[in-house]
Design a binder for these strands. Structure first.
Lengths: 245, 245
DNA sequence: TCAGCTCTTTGATCCACGTCAACCCCTTTG
DNA sequence: CAAAGGGGTTGACGTGGATCAAAGAGCTGA
């Protein structure tokens, strides 16, 4: 279905304007005729298979990417091979902003499931955003949001204990699924315990134990990657107390 | 001296074009006549006394700030009062980018010493960067650099042990002092052990002990806030080994 | 359908860093 | 110059989460 869409000209033409992710993505706040102009430069689309990389650290930077379907993780690697996951990205979110500063990417972006992204050539985006004020502003907001998000992760890594981190993670995922029209209470995590652990600055065993504890206490029901949140307020309260630093 | 400069019209006119920080700041990469246009909108300057706040979380966002003299820390606060320092900023660096996304600031910016910033009204910056391509691009680079920096901090907080974190911090400070024409080997830290600890996700005692250890091992000489780096390669090697996650 | 994966869970043990507490050194102020 | 207070250092001790180990549970592919 997706494939047949992808090759029909109407679909290409109507990319952003018909996309149900526009509220979350670059077209947010644009007038209809402005979205049409954005469509023109977002022609190309790219499929990325599960475990394949959209880009790697060091790759030359040419475009940013909007996730149309699927999800990704981004990570940076130390010389000794250890990995730090810097984020998980869902549909409508923008990948590749790290590449602007040095003109090549500084992290790796890996698909967590078979995914598809809209390729947005950066030079053309800058060009268009010089003409379209609302696009310029929305793009700045997207970048700024990434900075704010990163500060939240620092808070998490620097000041919270293991169970708080996982609670914050689950609440964040829940809220993002909800924003995309999915259930806030029940969802599939596409990443492994190891990847969650890397993101949260914990070992996978600690993540697993925290999940078990939450389940024992009746906050969530966990079956492998399938999560059901049973007591969202309980999780929120868990967050409130117990800072470490 | 600074005060007398600040009120002379030439000085206001020549702000960016004569500023020795242009290489590090927004004017980087602009042609001379473009810098002149930037000067026009960077008229206002603001002094911030040590310990005073340039802005607070929740303040309406109207401008970003370039640090002319002095230094700052930014932090976010949890409801329970615990603080996470998200960064230390030096001359030429830009403060306030977090405010763009929600139209109000999401963190606090506090001067670590008596400081002065250039106020850059954001609406006018967006306006000008629609006209001046090189300014637009440099601004995007500045935002992107902040994102890359944040990823580095995540790496630090999520994957490094205490001594590695402090070593990374010292090397980073050293490099930034050097970029500003100061000694890379000898400098004054403007922040307390507690603030360093908050930034690095450690308690102040742990920071203090790590300083002592580095001193015992001959890597640095530490006298309160005065640091002399004696063996920069030793510090770098310390970074290479010993990841935790 | 089975073999060989990878991912997850759980238990036992260890240790890096947090916590608590005492003391020291500067700096500031009257 | 004395007193007060804010940093900073150091020691003793406790603990949250890492580490090591083993077994179970789901996929994947022949």
């Amino acid at each position: 279905m997706k494939a047949s869409f992808a090759i029909t000209p109407q679909y290409v033409k109507a990319a952003c304007s018909q996309c149900n992710l526009r509220e979350l993505c670059l077209p947010f706040g644009l007038a209809e005729h402005e979205v049409d102009r954005l469509d023109e430069l977002v022609g190309a689309r790219r499929k990325v298979k599960r475990q394949a990389q959209l880009y790697r650290a060091g790759d030359p930077f040419e475009a940013i990417y909007a996730i149309r379907t699927g999800s990704f993780k981004t990570d940076v690697l130390l010389e000794d091979g250890r990995e730090q996951v810097t984020g998980f990205q869902m549909t409508g979110e923008i990948l590749g902003l790290d590449g602007i500063s040095a003109e090549n990417h500084s992290c790796n972006a890996t698909a967590l499931e078979d995914s598809e992204v809209c390729v947005i050539p950066f030079a053309r985006l800058e060009e268009l955003s010089r003409e379209v004020e609302s696009l310029q502003h929305q793009f700045h907001k997207v970048m700024s949001r990434e900075i704010v998000r990163d500060h939240g992760v620092m808070m998490l890594l620097g000041s919270m204990r293991a169970e708080e981190r996982l609670a914050a993670f689950l609440l964040n995922m829940s809220q993002r699924f909800m924003a995309r029209g999915f259930s806030a209470a029940e969802f599939h995590l596409r990443m492994t315990r190891d990847e969650i652990g890397s993101y949260l600055g914990l070992k996978l065993e600690t993540v697993s134990r925290a999940f078990s504890k939450f389940q024992d206490e009746g906050f969530v029901s966990v079956q492998q990657k399938h999560i059901r949140i049973l007591d969202i307020d309980g999780l929120k309260q868990l967050l409130g107390r117990c800072a470490r630093n």
